[in-house]
Design a protein around this nucleic acid. Structure first.
Lengths: 247, 247
DNA sequence: TGAGGCGTTTGATCCACGTCAACCCGCTTG
DNA sequence: CAAGCGGGTTGACGTGGATCAAACGCCTCA
């Protein structure tokens, strides 16, 4: 795989206005006043399309911007020298990618599109400048970063202390909630990632993920058809989580 | 090895001046100019002593400040309903605790002192105000948050993709580096946490941690005496990490 | 339309780590 | 001084998930 040079900026150099975006409630502007949001419009750089399996950025790329997912979805991952991969997260519309790069001015993980996707480029220098002027933006950005830390703690809990079926139940419940927040069905959705990627995220092998899916189906918790999931008994899934070691 | 006396302790309840603190290089002011650091002096609230096993904050406490560890050390953890604990991190002098609270204005994990400790209280509202005025502070704070995210990704890698001995080797190398950065020996140090806490952090049971320590000792990598660790062969430890699945 | 490939499922077997249990050591406390 | 206790080590054994392997369904593309 040849390393992509910089972005061959495609024709759609269209800027996106936060003030007119229907993802406001899920994205950086969440909770800001209309007036403050208007000030964001100058902040967002061009959009960028990323095709399925293409990288938005790679480990080592110099850090210049963070990205807000507009359409599609991504995974972020880190690699060990021997090729082992750890997926650190899946990102959907409205979510922010790239915060890892701030610490060293270079990205420390890879971001790969799971499907043809579309992001808003938020030049970081501009974001810092504007958030010195717009208090609500500053505060909102801090919340976004903190939320990422809290999310990571949740994943650490999952990886460190849960068994396979608990992990997968937590994953499904989380996906369901995020689809719901985006106006999709809470009970029926299409996973964009493979069993192997789910497994990497959950610290499991793909066979184990597959078996857990099958078990859930046998137990009437869900219906699985490849990547299409229908949750039949959400209560049952949640019970898997809060359960004492299943006496 | 006795703990080196880090700070000429001034009287109790005194505010701490960042401009005169010898932890500058490890703490929030890192990389800021002397002039900018002087502006921090007004920011820091009182200090607070926390005795061994006492909480600095608990899940649910309203979020008002972040903390910089001055002396001693802490663990942060989250709990599952059934009592399972996941240690999410260990913090040493100069490191910042409490960033998890920003996202919801309430803390989402517990912070417990591992030994009698001492923190600087940094009222968060003040920090946001000042960082709108002092660009270097703003940038530095963003780096601190990002570094926490990157660190969490490392832990996820560890929990999701490494085997027991790799995890412990990574832990020891990390501890060694952090002690070194604080002017202590890289090869010989005193762990402040129990085997159970290490295990919780690494996603292992305490027996497994103990056995891995013993194995390392058998193999001439380290010397263990309870909490006292001496690294004999750091290269060997590092090799455990970069090794292909030990063919 | 057929062939090849990727992703997934499922079965059989293995093993790293968990579990259970005994014991040791150093500290504290009456 | 003994008794109690928290932390650590070590051994025997069990098991959840990894590994190895086979087969299947769906999708792409010639």
């Amino acid at each position: 795989m040849p390393h992509r040079a910089v972005v061959p900026i495609t024709a759609e150099g269209l800027k996106t206005a936060c003030s007119q975006c229907n993802l406001q409630e899920l994205c950086l502007p969440f909770g800001m006043s209309d007036g403050d949001i208007n000030q964001l419009d100058g902040l967002i750089g061009a959009r960028r399309k990323v095709k399925r399996h293409q990288h938005l950025y790679r480990v080592g790329d110099t850090f210049e911007a963070i990205y807000a997912v507009r359409t599609g979805s991504f995974k972020t991952d880190v690699l060990l020298e021997d090729g082992r991969e750890q997926v650190t997260g899946f990102q959907m519309s409205g979510e922010i990618i790239g915060l890892d790069g701030i610490s060293t001015d270079a990205h420390t993980c890879n971001a790969v599109a799971l499907e043809d996707s579309d992001v808003c480029i938020i030049p970081f220098a501009n974001l810092e400048t504007l958030s010195r002027e717009v208090e609500s933006l500053q505060h909102q950005f801090h919340k976004v970063m903190s939320r990422e830390i809290v999310r990571d703690h949740g994943v650490m809990m999952l990886l460190g202390s849960m068994r396979a079926e608990e992990r997968l139940a937590a994953f499904l419940i989380n996906m369901s909630q995020r689809f719901t927040a985006r106006g999709f069905s809470a009970a029926e959705f299409h996973l964009r990632m493979t069993r192997e990627e789910i497994g990497s995220y959950l610290g499991l092998k793909l066979e184990t993920v597959s078996r857990a899916f099958s078990r859930f189906q046998e137990n009437g918790l869900i219906k699985v058809q490849q990547k299409h999931i229908r949750i039949v008994n959400i209560g049952g899934l949640k019970a898997l989580l809060s359960h004492l070691p299943s006496v």
